[in-house]
Design a protein around this nucleic acid. Structure first.
Length: 892
RNA sequence: GGGAGCAUAGCUCAGCUGGGAGAGCGUCUGCCUUACAAGCAGGAUGUCAUAGGUUCGAUCCCUAUUGUUCCCACCA
């Protein structure tokens, strides 16, 4: 115990401590009428691969909150689990299949392919769980869930059928976003927009039975084959005469009419718009208004179909190139302009989205949004920081229907059954094999649901809903949801409206939103850029506590953070590393945290090696001033940490802890108390008290090292730190006067150190101190401190300056004037310069204060406390200035 | 087009309902002072983006401007 190494080694500790928590079943929660519940459901990581730094951040925040609440006496439940992540996982498994076996999913068939995906899920799901454990997550592993497990699937069907029966789910042809690579429909949220350089082609459409043309401008000429009209603005004088005429659609033998529609902007392009209802959302609307034919010109993989005539079979871009060439040769291409525009891309594979008409399933959103808006307006759910509620509202108030069907195999298959015989469609919670209408066999819908459909139910599906289980009744609604601002639309919004609709309650009280973890250049981490940092590697290098501490240090809620690392060989700033070549060798932020962990470790070693058998955490009756000082400071700390945690200000809380432990406890209290070690006035119990309690406050942030150290301490209530009650503010440990006194001594010591350093006096050179003060008792008490911390060999405390020898350095500090006879060491010129500088500074301060105090407005309107403080300051400065002036006089 | 964030020390960032700005890293000086060199002591560095306004008083609140990042929408 007393032979602990001088370097804290996380590897000796973390796995062992984690196991002890699991063995103690401390993570497990059960409905408990004697306690209040505190519930968090984890944002389930995708089973696509492994955790990245963003997860580590997200989960650290949750673990901090859950550990804090657990210690505060809540029945704290953190539900873990993973997400099946429809498209993302299917893509991964398909890629693996292609690489390793040269097969496609169609080669295997649906059933066999799904077996492969389940194998994948097993492997990577488990890997993710083990990574969560490495980070220190105190999830209730008895309740681990998966979005496609039995319970969640049941909830999905319940919700689907409910919504369908209420008429809030419908099926029909609409323009949707189609990913030709994933071969599925996507919701609007799953499309990312990126600026792309493109062209604006001006093409002539001949007016039938004339030699005249109209010119239309398009960025997507290949959709021409689906044109069923050309539209102009009804107010456009230029085209009034051709409205109603027929046009010859180039490269085809079709004729299309010229129609008028308000949608057309006269000013933009040529004022003529080709209308392609099957391939453009706006055109689709125009088409509906004018009852136009809908002609789809592409196959599911974005190759051209038979409507494209001789271009059939070509890829859409190949076709574009070829037809432009042909149009040019035919003299129908008027001009080509450079044109950059936003193009939709699949959020999973990056392929350019094709807007396409397709039969899909939709959730009607408007009616569902109402309750979700109200939940946030009424503060049933609150966003932290508050500004994100605007993001949410903005989306919620402008929702459009949600396309929920996906042409994938991996996911919840839509519970709709078709009878090919009578045409009946049945939506049912239970699987059916025969048509309830005609008794003929039915076939189930091939499509699966959007992966977000099931994650939208996560806060209640994981707690037993639709059953009214004890868990559901006790733990739901949950307390806090922690997640990144990037999935407010995908997930948070959908959880809120789903919960409001199906459970009648908002799913959580607080939504604690955090930012993204970026690389050292401020860029998003990504595999393709090679700038991703594996949290497990960082843990391996520095320990989980150091990583966790780093992730919450210096970050304000909702803000992004940078995670700089150094590579070997080094990578130029602004450049991306090549993971094959550049290895991570350092991480400045984490090193600082690791050093902090080490500091605590060594402070604890110091305490432990100085304890005798009688040591405990019971505070003695005869507390010394410095004991009262640290106890008061600790008391303040308890309040600060608790307040800040309650406000989700984790970054501030962690800074408070750092300052208290390093500065106040280590640099001052332990140093102040060293002279008392081993004497009959041994401070050991105060040391144990403060250390053991500060470990409690630090535990949520650095669970491993705190638990380890705590186990060595002779505390009265000996149990695992993780379940030890949180500290409370104690009025009886507030010693205002002693705090003032010790602060006075501290500033005197600092002033002496400062001067000695300026005068280049080495610590080995001891000095005599004469302290002239009206507070003799205070400074007398500090005698030992001056000897130890200000390198004095003798300390004389007096109330008068009589008899002080002339050749002294004098310094003025709060409550005292200190003289240091320095013999020949004193450099008179230097000392005069120093005092003169001091004089100028004080005069400046006095001027400032006097100016302020002579300002009538200030005296009349400022709060009394502020004015008094200012007066006090002024007096103190004047007093100090007098002494400085006197010192100068003596020197000259 | 709509919305949001950011601009503070060389770098990365804090700054808690307005009362003369802080940390870490880096840097400079001196130290193995009986827990810690992953340490100790001391120092230097800021027109708190710009211009107005409110106020006795503004880094903080309001307005505008500039720069920057992001989200949403989008005229073919």
């Amino acid at each position: 115990m007393r032979n602990l190494e001088t370097k804290y080694n996380p590897k000796d500790v973390e796995d062992r401590i984690y196991k002890s928590w699991v063995d103690g079943k401390y993570f497990h929660a059960e409905p408990n009428p004697d306690k209040k519940p505190f519930t968090i459901v984890i944002p389930p990581p995708n089973v696509t691969g492994q955790l990245h730094m963003g997860h580590a951040f997200d989960e650290t925040l949750q673990d901090i909150l859950i550990r804090y609440k657990r210690m505060q006496g809540f029945e704290a439940l953190w539900v873990p689990g993973t997400d099946h992540a429809g498209i993302a996982t299917q893509i991964k498994v398909e890629a693996e299949l292609r690489e390793k076996e040269g097969l496609t999913r169609y080669d295997l068939g649906r059933e066999k392919f799904l077996e492969r995906v389940w194998d994948w899920k097993e492997k990577y799901g488990n890997r993710i769980i083990s990574q969560l454990k490495k980070i220190g997550c105190s999830c209730d592993w008895d309740r681990e869930r998966f979005t496609m497990d039995e319970g969640c699937s049941k909830a999905v069907r319940e919700v689907f059928v409910n919504l369908y029966n209420k008429g809030l789910i419908y099926r029909g042809p609409r323009i949707i976003n189609w990913c030709p690579n994933c071969i599925t429909a996507l919701s609007n949220e799953e499309v990312e927009h990126a600026e792309q350089a493109g062209h604006f082609w001006h093409i002539k459409y001949q007016i039938k039975d004339t030699d005249e043309y109209v010119v239309i401008a398009t960025t997507r000429p290949e959709t021409l084959f689906g044109d069923t009209a050309v539209a102009v603005n009804p107010e456009d004088e230029r085209y009034k005469n051709i409205v109603g005429k027929m046009l010859l659609l180039p490269l085809t033998d079709r004729e299309i009419p010229v129609i008028t529609d308000e949608y057309v902007d006269k000013e933009f392009g040529t004022g003529c718009v080709k209308i392609t209802p099957a391939h453009d959302p706006n055109d689709f609307e125009v088409g509906k208004r004018h009852d136009l034919e809908i002609i789809k010109v592409m196959n599911d993989d974005a190759t051209m179909n038979s409507y494209a005539g001789k271009y059939e079979g070509m890829d859409r871009y190949e076709c574009r190139k070829a037809m432009i060439k042909d149009l040019e040769e035919m003299g129908l291409l008027v001009k080509t302009e450079e044109h950059s525009h936003n193009v939709g891309q699949c959020y999973r594979c990056g392929t350019t989205i094709e807007p396409i008409v397709s039969d899909q399933w939709f959730v009607q959103m408007k009616p569902l949004a109402e309750a979700a808006i109200e939940a946030v307006n009424s503060k049933e759910t609150e966003f932290v920081p508050e500004r994100f509620s605007k993001t949410y509202m903005n989306w919620m108030e402008n929702v459009y229907d949600w396309c929920i069907s996906r042409q994938l195999w991996w996911g919840h298959r839509i519970p709709a059954f078709y009878c090919d015989d009578c045409g009946e469609m049945t939506v049912s919670k239970e699987d059916i094999t025969v048509c309830p209408k005609c008794g003929k066999p039915v076939r189930q819908e091939e499509d699966v649901l959007d992966t977000w459909f099931s994650s939208a139910l996560w806060p209640f599906s994981t707690l037993g809903w639709p059953e009214e289980t004890e868990d559901y009744k006790y733990f739901y609604p949950t307390s806090t949801l922690v997640t990144g601002y990037d999935i407010i639309f995908f997930w948070v919004s959908r959880m809120i409206f789903s919960a409001c609709e199906h459970t009648g309650k908002a799913p959580f009280k607080h939504v604690f939103i955090h930012g993204l973890v970026r690389d050292g250049n401020g860029e998003k981490m990504s595999k393709s850029k090679g700038n991703g940092i594996d949290p497990l590697q960082i843990i391996d290098m520095f320990g989980a506590d150091a990583l966790r501490f780093t992730l919450v240090t210096g970050v304000a809620p909702g803000n992004d953070m940078r995670f700089p690392v150094t590579y070997d060989p080094p990578v130029e700033k602004g450049k991306n590393p090549n993971p094959e070549v550049n290895k991570i060798v350092g991480a400045p932020g984490v090193e600082a945290s690791r050093n902090f962990a080490n500091k605590i470790w060594n402070a604890s070693r110091f305490v432990l090696m100085n304890l005798d058998d009688s040591a405990s955490d019971v505070l003695p009756k005869n507390l010394m001033a410095e004991d009262k000082w640290i106890l008061s400071k600790f008391n303040d700390l308890v309040k600060k940490i608790t307040d800040n945690l309650d406000k989700f200000e984790l970054g501030v809380a962690v800074q408070n802890l750092y300052d208290f432990i390093w500065d106040e406890f280590c640099d001052w209290y332990i140093e102040l108390v060293k002279p008392r070690m081993g004497t009959e006035n041994n401070p050991q119990n105060v040391l144990v008290y403060v250390l053991s309690n500060v470990l409690k406050l630090l535990h949520p942030f650095m669970p491993f090292i705190t638990e380890e150290i705590y186990s060595y301490l002779p505390v009265t209530d000996k149990k695992a730190l993780i379940i030890t009650p949180w500290c409370e503010y104690k009025e009886e440990l507030n010693f205002k006067q002693d705090v003032e006194n010790i602060e006075m001594i501290k500033s005197a010591i600092k002033a002496i150190r400062n001067i000695r350093s300026e005068m280049n006096v080495p610590p080995s050179k001891k000095a005599k101190l004469i302290i002239v003060t009206q507070k003799a008792d205070v400074f007398k008490n500090g005698e030992a401190f001056f000897k130890k911390l200000a390198w004095a060999d003798s300390v004389e405390v007096t109330s008068s300056k009589d008899g002080i020898e002339e050749n002294c350095i004098s310094l003025v500090t709060d409550g005292a004037e200190i003289f240091m006879p320095q013999g020949d060491l004193i450099d008179k010129e230097k000392e005069i310069a120093r005092l003169t500088q001091e004089k100028v500074k004080l005069e400046g301060e006095i001027l400032r204060v006097e100016k302020k105090l002579s300002n009538e407005g200030f005296v009349a309107k400022a709060p009394k406390a502020v004015i008094d403080a200012e007066r006090e300051k002024g007096e103190k400065y004047k007093e100090m200035l007098d002494k400085v002036l006197e010192g100068l006089k003596n020197l000259q």
